[in-house]
């Protein structure tokens, strides 16, 4: 098996897990959050106790699989450190290295937000761990705003990731 084969395999796995992650991120932001207010109170537990915990499981592990396969892919392509240096230092330079580097940093920030901000706050907000009513409310707000931040970051992140595959786009 050549390194090209493994790079192809990991790019495929990276896109699969990325769709799982960002697909669910967009589900939360475009479908669930904007419509919670329209659901009668007695029906809300169907979302908060069943749907949201299941979606959050695939969401956070999708994020984990995406960053792991992404780092492996970058290493296989031999541009991991050059890209993380945004093409400013190291042996590889060029707009596509800078672009993929920006994408990688944005993705890494988003992964951090998922595991260290959104998930701990959602556990309190959804009642998966004990918290008083005030803490629950605050946690739900922090989780929502961080989820929105990740939705915002997903737009330039995907632009950087996809454009890096088309070096001609940068002339």
């Amino acid at each position: 098996m050549t390194v090209e084969f493994w790079a192809f395999l990991f790019r495929w796995l990276h896109v699969l897990s990325g769709v799982m992650w960002i697909g669910l991120l967009w589900y939360f932001n475009f479908v669930q959050i904007p419509n919670m207010g329209k659901i009668p109170d007695e029906q809300k537990p169907a979302i908060s106790k069943v749907i949201a915990p299941a979606a959050l499981f695939w969401f956070r592990w999708g994020a984990m699989a995406t960053i792991i396969t992404g780092l492996i892919l970058a290493a296989l392509n031999d541009y991991l450190w050059n890209a993380l240096a945004l093409g400013l230092a190291g042996s590889m330079k060029g707009a596509h290295i800078t672009a993929i580097g920006f994408g990688m940093w944005l993705g890494a920030i988003m992964w951090f937000n998922v595991w260290f901000i959104i998930w701990p706050n959602q556990k309190r907000a959804l009642g998966l761990v004990e918290a008083d009513a005030d803490t629950k409310k605050k946690s739900a707000r922090i989780a929502m705003l961080t989820s929105r931040l990740n939705t915002m970051l997903s737009i330039p992140m995907l632009f950087a990731m996809v454009s890096a595959q088309n070096p001609v786009a940068y002339g």
Partner: peptide, 30 residues
């Protein structure tokens, strides 16, 4: 003041603006 991320259209708008800023930055660096 309300956080602009509380509005979904603002979130998308900010994302597009950030994309344009990054493209200009990539162009400037290289």
């Amino acid at each position: 003041m309300k956080n602009p991320l509380e509005s979904l259209p603002n979130t998308i708008g900010l994302g597009i603006v950030l994309t344009i800023v990054l493209v200009i930055l990539v162009k400037a660096i290289n």
